[in-house]
């Protein structure tokens, strides 16, 4: 049987088997990609860490309208952010989006704190603007964690 006839035979008489094989190969490929390239599953520890820290940061910012600065509270918040970052980074590249988000929250926090320390106490307008932005940063990271699938 020649090549063309063979192809016609395979295609005409064995269509279901050929299609099935192709689909199985495709599914195997997708599964391999899933193992390698997707994302981490939802982590309740991550969710709780972020939801707990957000009000702490809001409370800290509230003190920035006064003359005194609580350096220990700033340091404690900085430490918690660093701990969250290391925890997320430890999950590897499949968690890249989350640890990159934490890094941005850290950068925003540092910029805000530096502003307070160098320019003095905040006005109400400035406080509200800063709070709105850092709160939104936390909200984005919290929602991102909720978007992840549960490992069931």
């Amino acid at each position: 049987m020649g090549g063309k006839s063979m192809r016609k035979y395979l295609i005409r008489d064995n269509v279901p088997k050929v299609i099935l094989l192709n689909h199985l190969l495709l599914l195997w490929f997708i599964s391999a990609c899933a193992y390698v390239g997707f994302i981490t599953y939802y982590d309740p520890i991550t969710y709780k860490s972020l939801t707990d820290l957000k009000p702490e940061v809001m409370a800290l910012y509230g003190t920035f309208t006064t003359d005194s600065v609580d350096a220990s509270q700033i340091a404690a918040t900085r430490l918690k952010l660093a701990q969250i970052y290391e925890y997320e980074k430890g999950k590897g590249e499949k968690n890249r989006e989350t640890y990159e988000q934490i890094k941005k929250i850290q950068a925003m926090f540092e910029r805000h704190v530096s502003d307070r320390l160098t320019t003095g106490r905040w006005t109400t307008t400035h406080l509200n603007n800063q709070k709105q932005n850092i709160a939104e940063a936390f909200d984005i990271a919290i929602k991102t964690e909720r978007l992840k699938n549960k490992n069931e």
Binding site: K104, A141, K143, T144, L147, K148
Partner: peptide
């Protein structure tokens, strides 16, 4: 924030 949002969309 916009960069964070892009990361969220990726997730």
């Amino acid at each position: 924030l916009t960069e964070m949002k892009a990361l969220q969309m990726s997730v």
